[in-house]
Design a protein around this nucleic acid. Structure first.
Length: 359
DNA sequence: AACTCGTGGAT
DNA sequence: TATCCAAGAGT
């Protein structure tokens, strides 16, 4: 008589081999390429990653190339993908592997964990998927699948940090091909055992599912409540000079750290009659005259806050040309023409506002 | 341990 | 429209 983990594995392996989606990163066994895919896929949907993955690998085809690259170029390739710290950590990780490991991606989870940006999940994913090592992994999909299969109703035991899930995932991937089973657990969660309306009719392990037996498949896992996002109203100041617009680099800490945005200035309640304040007399060291509000605000929703960006236009006053450098301006400051973009990271929110302004 | 960090699709 | 949350990691 097979134990639970072996019964799951027995059903899951043939199901995955027949029903898996054709995803670009499943066409390679290059550990570096799989590593890149896992970083991109953190908290990010498959369809979104597909739009970036091939271009990124074309640009940075191996560890050495990525390690030797400038961070600004890595961020440029990541622009629009979000969670930009991932790009910096991936870059640092490539340097770690190039400098300390001879450019060879390790196959042991303990060694993988030492790579910047590689946590418990990603270490298990690279070890199992790239090297077929019996390393368990628990992401949001696996946590949901295992919670339902075992009808775990305690919220603390449902999420991906649960030690019980890690132990069970380990047992399951060891009961067959780790490479197949690790991906199969996630694929099941992504395509069948979905959060909202699980397709239990087509589930290869429905005979093992205690949640289904108890009618709890939509009650598990319990929905987690999140605090409402505060709204921030900001003036997005388009300072123009000679047909160009001013971008500035955000602070090195916090939201959109180090990325290129239009200068943003708090829009106070007292401003809301419609006019930008006279306090926008200087932006990023550039003197501004004749500030005028433009059209509707750009709404941008982050995980923990909402930005309402109110575009306004100002003409640059006489600029002190001693600020000019060979790169074109002061570090952290850039004038761009329509269609032009600086090296470095540009978040989607910047692109939204630039599009509104015709840049 | 709770919080931070982007974006977009599904419902 | 509002809400959830996705192949998480670092602090």
């Amino acid at each position: 008589m097979l134990d639970f983990a072996h019964r799951i594995a027995k059903h899951l392996e043939p199901w995955f081999l027949q029903h898996q989606r054709d995803l670009t990163w499943r066409r390679t066994r290059d550990p570096y390429a799989i590593w890149v895919s896992e970083i991109m896929l953190q908290q990010t949907r498959v369809d979104t990653v597909e739009a970036y993955y091939g271009k990124f690998l074309d640009r940075f085809p191996d560890v050495g190339t990525l390690a030797a690259a400038d961070e600004s170029d890595v961020l440029a390739a990541w622009s629009g993908l979000g969670y930009y710290r991932r790009a910096r950590l991936l870059h640092a990780g490539a340097r770690h592997v190039a400098e300390n490991l001879g450019g060879v991606v390790p196959d042991e989870p303990d060694q993988l964990r030492k790579i910047p940006g590689v946590g418990k999940y990603t270490a298990g994913a690279i070890a199992s998927i790239a090297f077929d090592r019996p390393a368990g992994l628990v992401d949001g999909n696996v946590a949901r699948v295992l919670s339902r299969l075992q009808a775990i109703e305690e919220p603390r035991l449902q999420d991906a940090s649960s030690a019980g899930h890690w132990a069970m995932a380990q047992k399951i991937v060891q009961a067959g091909s780790p490479r197949v089973l690790a991906q199969a657990l996630m694929e099941l969660g992504a395509t069948v055992c979905t959060p909202m309306a699980p397709r239990c009719e087509g589930c290869p392990v429905r005979s093992e599912c205690q949640a289904l037996a108890k009618g709890l498949q939509t009650a598990i896992p319990a929905p987690k409540q999140r605090a409402p996002s505060p709204r921030e109203d900001l003036w997005a100041v388009a300072v123009r000079r000679d047909g160009r617009v001013l971008l500035e680099q955000r602070p090195t800490e916090g939201l959109l750290a180090g990325l290129w945005c239009l200068p943003l200035i708090e829009r106070k309640i007292s401003d809301r009659a419609g006019a930008p304040p006279r306090s926008i007399a200087e932006v990023t060291g550039v003197k501004v005259k004749s500030v005028e509000a433009l059209a509707e605000p750009v709404k941008h929703v982050f995980t923990h806050r909402v930005w309402m960006l109110w575009p306004c236009r100002g003409e640059a006053a006489i600029v002190d040309m001693s600020h000019q450098t060979d790169e074109g301006d002061t570090p952290g400051r850039m004038w761009i023409a329509p269609g032009e973009r600086p090296r470095g990271g540009i978040p989607k929110v910047t692109e939204k506002v630039l599009a509104r302004l015709g840049f």
